[in-house]
């Protein structure tokens, strides 16, 4: 089926899609709050964030609060477009099946 080609490979993993939906809805989000919201482990979240970073779908900015590192994540323009396209593909699939 042609429609499956429209799906973004980067979003095949559910957690990545979830991360992206949080970042698209918010200006930025920090690591710990993401972890809490998505109820995932540090390692799991970090590896998927890395994957999204590699696609240049997210922008990372690191800073410190006192001595604790505080990493903020934001969706890049490319990431927002990819997310929108992926949702449209899902929508098309539903329409087709009807």
């Amino acid at each position: 089926m042609k429609i499956f080609d429209q799906f973004d490979k980067a979003f095949e993993n559910r957690l990545r899609l979830q991360i992206m939906s949080v970042l698209v809805a918010n200006e930025y989000y920090d690591f710990n709050s993401l972890k809490e919201l998505l109820e995932v482990t540090d390692g799991n979240l970090a590896s998927h964030l890395k994957a999204l970073e590699k696609e240049e779908y997210i922008i990372i900015s690191k800073s410190f609060i006192g001595r604790k590192p505080n990493t903020q994540y934001a969706a890049s323009l490319l990431g927002k477009q990819a997310f929108k396209k992926h949702l449209e593909a899902l929508e098309n699939l539903i329409k087709q099946q009807k």
């Binding site: 979830q18 698209v24 989000y29 919201l37 998505l38 949702l87 899902l90 699939l93 539903i94 099946q97």
Partner: peptide
């Protein structure tokens, strides 16, 4: 991918966007 899966996917996205 089944239709059911897509709906659950979409509703989980919606839910997350709202909760966040």
């Amino acid at each position: 991918m089944e239709e059911k899966d897509i709906y659950s996917e979409l509703s989980s996205i919606r839910n997350l966007m709202e909760r966040s």
